[in-house]
Design a protein around this nucleic acid. Structure first.
Lengths: 200, 200
DNA sequence: ATTAGACATTCCACTGTGGACTGTCAAGGA
DNA sequence: TCCTTGACAGTCCACAGTGGAATGTCTAAT
């Protein structure tokens, strides 16, 4: 039961527990806020890892409070495991971009539909860039250098993506005269809408 | 057994099967080559999805040839399922970047170790950018607009990441006088770490 | 004839995702 | 006061994705 190195997600939880005991719920909130922009994790996962780390002695569960609330605190072994994980070479990043998949197969799709997808995604990136810009402005330059660095990554990424959108060929982005329909009528489930009868 | 919409990975396989029957092995190779830069998939997954789609009637397995080689071909139902999938709004992209996790917890780590990690990752991105640039140059402008678009995404992404690396605070990137402590395996490629001023 | 290496599939353990379900407590309105 | 709403808190499950081990086959070169 001793060894078993934590995975990156579990290790992050150990990291957050350095500032005191936390419940699974709190850890989810913290993680979403602090590393959520580049490291996704879910409730299910957090509770699963906490249970596993409890069994492995890396954390220890306190007694359950109101609403089944159960705080976990770091053990000495947990602290050690965290340091060891942190000192191992981080893996390559992973990107999975469904829109690029759709574009890849774009010749099977009516140009207008593809253009709508592209426009919708572009809008989301516009919004996200805005969020990053204000966050960055609020952070100033005197904030934690580590936090600034990760924020800057998000900023540059969104700028690059937006730049990419703005240089897409008209074949994909659609003809540029029209502002592109933002409220997309494209369904999410079921068959293509009967209304749209264009061929490619 | 009829419905069951394919997931994005399965649907991609259907997409590749439009150009004729292929084995799992060939599909892995094709996928890695064509969409591998923004959509990861593994052997295990491909064989699993093929078996499931065979059971669902979206593909049909041919007879096994030499070396257990088993080709699958698209059925009419598979072609239909592919079109339906393609016409659904693609989901948001997902990014998981372990290096940013390490940076987030950077205050728990000796600065020199962090700087090494950063330098190693930077080198990998330098190499990848180079790969994209030559691929892009070879593709020219007369190639398939859809392929160009996905390639351009990779290109802009790598440029942005590299730019980010080159603007990291010295707290994280290490002191810049010395070309950064490169631990073996990180050299190769056009510019050795000494040339890190501004360029590009 | 042997062997190295590419080809080809299967199986497994673990990790990650997202939704459904259950229940608890606090605050505000009827 | 009671009742509803919504935030809080955790469990469970099916499916998707990752990576490695194991197994075997065929070709080409020694």
């Amino acid at each position: 039961m001793e060894p078993k190195r934590p995975n990156a997600t579990a290790a992050s939880l150990l990291g957050f527990l350095h500032s005191g005991a936390k419940t699974g719920w709190e850890l989810v909130a913290t993680a979403e806020h602090v590393i959520g922009d580049f490291w996704s994790l879910t409730r299910s996962q957090v509770y699963r890892e906490l249970a596993a780390m409890d069994a492995a002695g890396l954390v220890s569960a306190g007694k359950t409070g109101p609403r089944e609330r159960r705080p976990y605190e770091l053990t000495a072994a947990g602290r050690k495991a965290f340091r060891e994980w942190l000192a191992t070479e981080p893996a390559q990043e992973q990107i999975r971009y469904p829109l690029l998949l759709t574009i890849s197969f774009g010749h099977h799709l009516p140009a207008t539909v593809l253009a709508e997808f592209v426009a919708a995604h572009r809008e989301r990136h516009v919004a996200r860039l805005e969020v990053y810009r204000t966050a960055r402005a609020e952070a100033g330059d005197d904030a934690d250098a580590y936090a600034i660095a990760t924020l800057d990554f998000g900023l540059r990424y969104e700028e690059a993506v937006l730049d990419w959108f703005d240089h897409l060929s008209p074949t994909i982005a659609g003809e540029t005269d029209e502002p592109a329909p933002v409220t997309s009528a494209t369904q999410r489930e079921g068959r293509p809408p009967g209304a749209r009868r264009r061929e490619r």
